[in-house]
Amino acid sequence: MDAALLEQMLLGSLLALSVYLPLRCGQLSLATPGFYAVGGYVAALLSTGVAAFAGSGATSPLPALVAEMVLGGMLAGLIALAIGGPVLRLRGIYLAIATIALVEILRVLNLNLPFTGGAMGIFGIPQPFAHAGGYVLFTLALLALACWLCQRLEAMRLGRAMAAIRDDELAAASVGIDTPRTKLIAFVASAVLAGITGALAAHFFNSWNARAGSFDASITTLAFVVFGGSRFWLGPVLGGLALTALPELLRPVGDLRLILFGAVILLGPLFFPQGLVTAERLRWLAALLRLGRKRGHQAPQAP
């Protein structure tokens, strides 16, 4: 498989995790592409406008990339913090609509601000890695970190609180969980992750424009989570990897490939309504493996 496609898949996974975080406490937020675009603009503007970020060699310095990712994540997080309070009072489909509106507002702003380059966007973004392989390793490390944090969340008080809110917000509030604060933390964490991903993606794609954060992108990232499963972090990761790769892997079938892709998206939720990865399926897989190992041990004793 090609490193560039792999990189796109990993970026897809990171975005899927960003959609997963608010869903983890029952909040359907489609704002991820908006924050992704913001993070990308931060990186694009800094690395094309500030000499220290661009560097002087063939590749731009790695610390500059990390700094851009931190700044991009911070800006996205601050925006989420500022609007999270009022927006998160909405629930379910109303929250989804409000976050779509947020993505639209950010998109129109990005198209019309004097320094974001209009529809053409910003191009000629310097490259921190000479080869796509460098991006892959770097993004893999980032994804591993994000997955580890998500796994830690399962055992943490915050993670338990989020799960409680997802299952029943009223009951969670009545046992003393600060629901507005927990939801806000999830929303901000989602924005930070999307912002960081955007900063990395802007370098990888060479150019950045307002189309990065469109309504279409909202739906695509949501599909990652719906397809992969929203109960456990492995679901969005797999969904992001699979659905980003699929249109490319289907190239040999020619003109039919987008029809097949659509069919997969349609059939996925139809046959796996909870997504590909569920707790039952993981347990079942673990049991299967245990059984396989036992058989393996017994085999030599057989006559």
């Binding site: 990993l10 893999l140 591993a144 796994q151």
Partner: peptide, 18 residues
Amino acid sequence: LLRLGTGLLTLSLLLAGC
């Protein structure tokens, strides 16, 4: 199981990347 899965995934991605 998850740790094993993540490890395998990482390895295969690394191999593919190079």
